[in-house]
């Protein structure tokens, strides 16, 4: 789950990207509205954590811009002005959720997962496919009565595939989900993670579509 973080405070911004990384997200931090616009134009993000007071303007303006352009990107607004009026303004301005500073990392992660899930139209936190229950909050799965643990990257690949069952994701699309900007993309990484996943889930769970990419196999 690749998330754009728009926050100008370097300590908080760094904390958000590391902390959300620990929670199974891939987070890219930017410090200004201009950088955020450039990042949104360049990469596909699944969600955004947006601060309100930024050096070059209000985060709510960026949000309004996005919504005017028809974007449905799930956005969680962070603000220090934790007053009812501001919350209402933020939510009416198109924010999917709202968190007042300071906040708890786990709560932020849970809220982010909730708005991402809602954006996909899924009511439950668990992803279910072919007998596998995947729990994004714990980065664990359960298959045929067996509990499974995944590494952060394995989980990211599996989660991406199970979000849209049957849909083919290319290797580069998966890489984009796996790595933030600062991270070096290792060649073959996707193949290695898929290999490990197949060892845990059985060979047939993930299909290779030659020349196109990967998908989870049809139910049955």
């Amino acid at each position: 789950m690749r998330i754009l973080i728009v926050e100008d405070d370097p300590v908080l911004s760094e904390g958000l990207s590391v902390g959300l990384g620990l929670q199974g997200f891939t987070a890219d931090p930017v410090g200004t509205l201009a950088d955020a616009r450039a990042a949104l134009a360049d990469c596909a993000f699944e969600g955004m954590v947006l601060d309100v007071m930024l050096p070059d303007g209000s985060g709510l303006d960026l949000l309004a811009e996005l919504r005017r352009a028809g974007s449905a990107l799930p956005v969680l607004v962070l603000t220090a002005r934790d007053q009812l009026r501001d919350r209402v303004q933020g939510l009416d301005g198109g924010a999917d959720d709202y968190l007042g500073k300071p906040f708890d990392l786990e709560e932020l992660a849970a809220r982010l997962r909730a708005i991402l899930r809602r954006a996909e139209g899924r009511p439950t936190a668990l992803l279910r496919w072919n007998g596998l229950d995947l729990d994004p909050a714990r980065m664990t799965g359960r298959l045929d009565g067996r509990d499974l643990a995944f590494s952060r990257r394995e989980f990211a690949v599996l989660h991406a595939l199970m979000e849209r069952p049957g849909q083919i994701l290319s290797k580069s699309a998966l890489e984009e989900r796996l790595y933030g900007w600062q991270e070096e993309v290792e060649s073959n990484a996707v193949e290695v993670h898929v290999h490990h996943l197949r060892a845990k889930l059985g060979r047939a769970f993930i299909e290779t579509v030659r020349g196109l990419g990967y998908r989870v196999a049809a139910e049955g």
């Binding site: 405070d9 908080l12 962070l78 220090a80 300071p102």
Partner: peptide, 18 residues
């Protein structure tokens, strides 16, 4: 002032949790 004080607090909390 609220923003300027709460943002470093948020950063502190985040880093402490990390």
């Amino acid at each position: 002032a609220a923003h300027e004080l709460k943002t470093p607090l948020a950063g502190l909390r985040m880093q402490a949790q990390i």
